[in-house]
């Protein structure tokens, strides 16, 4: 996952070039090229799209682990990838860095406008994987915390997260402006959750579908004022994806609940199963494939 972000980034440049090369040399029965981020959870979602399409007789070309948005968004825009599982809020923020929408529906409609011509956001799923602020259970009980607003009475808070959190609208500045919470920021990078558990930071930004939230009994603080952008799972499709294929993918999105997504991630982290096995079992359980 994120630990291998840089390696994946480097490798994916090669992969993208490979995709570019293939596109021109396969004139017969055009497969649907499905991409995914170099993030295990995203790969599982991409795999559910792939299997439901294959089950309906489509040919699918899997181009998974394509790094982060800087690498794959240009490839999608260039028409090298036809279908990609994305997250409404994070993608909107990438396309429109100063976007102000926060609710799920507002973000989704803003995203539809922001997408480049030729790309469509299919139906968004109820499943979300978005930024959230978490504290340890001890810390929450000791200070009686359930919401971000409850932090305002505390002093000497440190916030841990990826380096870019320092500048994000929902980072230290957003916390102060919206909730009156003062924090000092510590860039804990890929060791954010470990730093929280070790007590090096008092609160941490963790993706809401991260299995470690339940494994380590972290308490996710509610966000009543809408500091975070909602980030629902949303398939991004090119014009090469037919209406029939879109309907199949939309059915997958509709069936996936937030709890399902966490459960899929837990299977990946705890049972170490491959994305294809996890996706297959889930699709069968939902009756989407036989």
């Amino acid at each position: 996952m994120k630990l291998t972000r840089i390696t994946a980034l480097v490798a994916s440049v090669g992969l993208v070039l490979g995709v570019a090369g293939c596109a021109s040399t396969t004139p017969s029965s055009e497969p649907i090229v499905i991409g995914s981020q170099a993030y295990y959870s995203n790969e599982i979602i991409a795999e559910t799209y792939a299997q439901v399409l294959e089950n309906a007789g489509y040919t699918v070309d899997r181009q998974f682990s394509l790094g982060q948005r800087d690498v794959y968004v240009p490839a999608i825009e260039a028409g090298e990838i036809d279908l990609f599982p994305e997250y409404t809020g994070n993608l909107l923020q990438y396309l429109v860095p100063d976007a102000t929408q926060t609710t799920a529906d507002d973000v989704y409609s803003a995203l539809a406008t922001a997408l480049p011509a030729g790309l469509t956001a299919l139906d968004m799923s109820p499943a979300t994987d978005q930024d959230s602020y978490n504290v340890t259970q001890d810390f929450a009980q000791k200070n009686n915390l359930t919401s971000i607003a409850d932090l305002a009475k505390l002093k000497d808070l440190t916030l841990g997260g990826a380096p870019e959190l320092a500048e994000r609208p929902y980072g230290p500045k957003g916390l102060l402006d919206m909730y009156g919470v003062t924090v000092s920021f510590q860039a804990t990078g890929d060791t954010t959750v470990d730093a929280l558990v070790a007590g090096q930071v008092s609160m941490a930004n963790v993706y809401s579908a991260d299995p470690r939230i339940s494994q380590l009994k972290l308490v996710t603080l509610s966000d009543p004022l809408g500091l975070f952008l909602a980030s629902n799972v949303v398939p991004i499709a090119s014009e090469k994806v037919s209406a029939d294929a879109r309907a199949l993918v939309n059915a997958v999105s509709a069936a996936m609940t937030p709890e399902d997504l966490v459960a899929l991630n837990v299977r990946s982290v705890e049972e170490k199963l491959s994305a294809s096995v996890i996706a297959h079992d889930w699709l069968v359980s939902k009756g989407l494939i036989k």
């Binding site: 972000r5 840089i6 982060q68 800087d70 990438y94 860095p97 841990g160 990826a162 380096p163 870019e164 320092a166 500048e167 510590q186 860039a187 804990t188 990078g189 890929d190 060791t191 954010t192 730093a195």
Partner: peptide, 23 residues
């Protein structure tokens, strides 16, 4: 340059943060 990946600073911080922010 790799140090920020595990939560330290150094000039890699500006590269890793800047890439994520497209700055």
């Amino acid at each position: 340059v790799l140090a920020p990946l595990v939560g330290l600073g150094g000039l890699g911080f500006g590269i890793i943060q800047g890439l994520a922010l497209r700055n």
